[in-house]
Design a protein around this nucleic acid. Structure first.
Length: 417
DNA sequence: TCTGGGGTCCTAGGACCC
DNA sequence: TCTGGGGTCCTAGGACCC
């Protein structure tokens, strides 16, 4: 097999660029990309963090994704803050995808704003890789109004690292023979896989650049960082074997929903309501995806940002809302230590197909529950999330369904990706 | 009204079995 | 009485990514 050619395509400041384009199309004269601006969540409901920032917001005020809006407003009083618009992001994602599909039949969606495409053997049609990448970038900018960075290499890791070299609106190659000059001088925390916890450990070993990591004895790294040491040593050396752009997404391992509650929960009955609203969401997604789950986990984040979780396995897989809700409540009771609760989550995993009926003594009972779940799912799909909800939520101040990124209806990013 | 949400993978320790 | 060790499953927690 010959050498592969992989492109990594990454939208520059995705959410912010998409919002900027949207506003320009609606006749506004200001381009958000040209001023200090961010897309941020709703502070009133305690979702106030930076989801995306403009280049000047980063350059002038060192604004980082994930920072609290409260903190960034202190430094940047004139900052423009736009609310997120996930339906728009989904449209932009799909529009970009349809352009990319023209250039290769093999595309791997990495996130809402990142894709890999396999350009191997496509040169006969679209020319040399650099020409094709520039053509793709220009087409996206001309037709969709936003810019992308494209990284080109022979594996996904290097294509991705290459795409990050200089932004925005750039094409870079980062082939193995260029790793030494283009990637090794970068700070070690720029390497994919080196995050908040690993970087300080590397500093302690006197490793500050990707090059220094690449030239460290891998045995020493394995001793200090276990298997992760080997992984990041490989990455630093441009080695990534999992190679290959996968057009079909890997199988789903689990489905979860969680939410930050707009007040601190201090009693289990309010917690139960939140858990029910999360269960409604997560179970509907489970059924839509055609799965039953055998493992349910509840996670708790306290008002002091302490985090813990508790999980339990079912004897038989299930997709029933009430069954999962009841076990979520039990898990909550068994784990909650009584602190004020900021955030609750439910995660279902160990999935199997739901296209067979689990035989059980309670067969008839189960059939009834299944019908009920189905009926409610259909009502909500047809008439919206408010078409059916449980009476406990009346006057409770708690949404009957929660978790995920919700627009008016079930327009969930993750379920569409 | 300072700090989101959805994922995946790995490790460590205890239970339990042979 | 003395004293193992391997393998697997379960659970909690931590790390990383976008």
């Amino acid at each position: 097999m010959g050498k592969r050619i992989i492109f990594h395509i990454d939208v520059n400041s995705a959410y912010l660029s998409w919002e900027a384009v949207y506003r320009l199309q609606r006749g506004e004269s200001l381009d958000l990309r040209t001023v200090p601006s961010v897309v941020g969540g709703d502070e009133a409901s305690r979702h106030g963090i930076v989801l995306a920032k403009s280049m000047s917001a980063k350059a002038l005020y060192k604004i980082q994704t994930g920072e609290s809006l409260f903190a960034v407003r202190q430094r940047a009083p004139n900052l423009i803050i736009a609310p997120p618009r996930y339906d728009l992001y989904m449209q932009c994602h799909k529009a970009m995808l349809s352009i990319l599909e023209e250039y290769s039949p093999s595309i791997q969606i990495f996130s809402i704003d990142e894709c890999f495409i396999d350009y191997t053997n496509m040169e006969a049609i679209w020319g040399p890789p650099l020409d094709a990448a520039h053509a793709i970038g220009k087409r996206i900018e001309k037709e969709l109004g936003f810019t992308v960075n494209i990284g080109i290499s022979s594996n996904k890791l290097l294509a991705k690292m290459g795409g990050d070299l200089k932004k925005p609106n750039m094409v870079h190659t980062l082939f193995p023979e260029e790793v030494r000059t283009k990637m090794w001088p970068l700070p070690v925390e720029d390497l994919y896989g080196v995050g908040r916890a690993t970087a300080p450990k590397l500093y302690q070993m006197g490793i500050y650049t990707i090059g220094e990591l690449a030239n460290t004895d891998p045995e020493l790294l394995k001793y200090k960082l276990k298997s992760y040491g080997q992984l990041i040593w490989d990455y630093a050396n441009g080695i990534e074997e999992s190679n290959g752009v996968k057009d079909s997404r890997p199988p789903i391992k689990g489905i979860g929903n969680s939410t930050t509650i707009n007040f601190d929960v201090d009693n289990k009955y309010d917690a139960y309501k939140i858990l029910l609203s999360l269960t409604e969401m997560v179970c509907m997604r489970l059924r839509q995806a055609g799965f039953c789950a055998q493992l349910v986990a509840v996670s708790i984040k306290t008002n002091e940002f302490k985090h813990y979780s508790h999980q339990k396995k079912f004897y038989t897989p299930t997709d029933h809302t009430t069954v999962i809700y009841e076990s979520a409540c039990r898990l909550f009771d068994e784990s909650w230590k009584g602190e004020p609760i900021r955030h609750l989550g439910i995660r279902l995993s160990e999935l199997c197909g739901n296209d067979f009926i689990q035989l059980s003594i309670l067969e008839a009972h189960n059939e009834k529950k299944k019908k009920l779940d189905e009926t409610i799912d259909n009502l909500r799909m047809k008439f919206g999330s408010k078409a059916a909800f449980r009476s406990v939520f009346l006057h409770s101040g708690i949404h009957p369904i929660s978790g995920g990124v919700m627009e008016e209806e079930y327009q969930m990013m993750s379920s569409l990706l």
